[in-house]
Design a protein around this nucleic acid. Sequence first.
DNA 1: GCGACGAGTTGATTTAGATCAACGCGGACA
DNA 2: TGTCCGCGTTGATCTAAATCAACTCGTCGC
Lengths: 244, 244
Amino acid sequence: MAELLPVFTACSTCPIRHRAVCASCDAEELDALNGIKYYKTYSAGQNIALRGDALDMVASIVAGTASLERVTEDGRVQMVGLLLPSDFIGRPGRSGLQYDVMAASDVTLCCFHRKPFEEMLDNTPHLRERLLEMAMDELDAARDWMLLLGRKTAREKITSFIDLIVRRSYHPAEAKLDQPMKIELPISREAMANFLGLTIETVSRQITALKRDGLIQIEGKRSVTIPDIYDLRAETGDDEEDVG
Amino acid sequence: MAELLPVFTACSTCPIRHRAVCASCDAEELDALNGIKYYKTYSAGQNIALRGDALDMVASIVAGTASLERVTEDGRVQMVGLLLPSDFIGRPGRSGLQYDVMAASDVTLCCFHRKPFEEMLDNTPHLRERLLEMAMDELDAARDWMLLLGRKTAREKITSFIDLIVRRSYHPAEAKLDQPMKIELPISREAMANFLGLTIETVSRQITALKRDGLIQIEGKRSVTIPDIYDLRAETGDDEEDVG
DNA sequence: GCGACGAGTTGATTTAGATCAACGCGGACA
DNA sequence: TGTCCGCGTTGATCTAAATCAACTCGTCGC
């Protein structure tokens, strides 16, 4: 159930100020954005918008986790986007959605009506530049994800997912990779299965196996401690080469 | 083996003029691009660049087919991008490649050195705008592809791939959907397997099955006739809803 | 003309993960 | 304070696609 989420009003104190679409905006540009933004919250499980809908806004995730999902005609579900704080929802220049947008947890969005945002885009080079950068980052992430979906084993999928959450949870600078790391899984087992192209039974079994092998420890259902992140990464199937 | 490919010099007669990254450039902008472009050809099977390489150019595909591939540490291959004429190679603002770029057939590229192209990007709003649009189109395509990789059966994967090639081979306006359609598969069975997250044996068997079921006819190895595209699409597993 | 090689097909067998089924556990609620 | 429900785990069995193995066909070089 959604308890009331904190509502931010000043961009200067916004937790995603330096990572979101507004990251490279200067004070003046930020001011303009500030004038057209509004906040909206959704509770866990709600759908934010459905495939085919005309979405009259774009938005940044301020808090919580949303997912993008595609569904086959007979109801098989594949997650095609996992949106964490600072990620962007919506496509400027096109209102018709290609996939469902779901609130995987309670979610706070910083929204902009489509029209004024698109106009700002034309007058604010920094904004379009940042949007392009984010789109290309997402494309790179999508390609990693395709390797995972097409070629990795169930165990590799799970370890890759945990590593992904680790990477998004720690700023590269402040991460101590040689110490145990602790994360919260942002989504349920079912959502993990839909992310990874597995069933929830297989997700559960693989997590149990990783626990048995000492690669992870679990407290509750969502809290994971990784004693040695290098050991975990050795199981992801990824080439070691550090690209990026 | 690569026979000599035709080399174009004037943008005005370029076959991809109205679909590539330069599509929305005006005469003046085109002129500037023209000044920094150069052509390069690769023969089938060659790699254009490898993961980790610093690629000092970006390029548009003029003719032929290239693929982007990711490889697991033990050599499993997943195609993560299929680039047909008018598609764009490279990422402005970052030279380090995240994946291998391969020539799936003989390929002609229209190349731009990275630095001058990035400078043009800053002075040419149309260019950045078009690039953003293309990146977002590719992201949407990547998401369809993720549904395919994660949740579709082998038969659905093959029919989806054939449908994809049909859609890229016919301009929507001039396509006669109620008549038999004929396409050339742009890639080998092995490349199809790597695209679809299957083995070549499974690809071969599924194609045979589709032939047996009368959904497709094959002449040679690459030429496919689809008697009824609607029958084929009914097998893709996709939701009928026409979005986009 | 003929062996070698690469691309593709077909068949037999194996297996990773799906499916079907039961059960545990904690929180909501009457 | 029980029981109901959603979420997750565990066990038994099944199956789609992988793997292992031959074989065909075309073409390239000699």
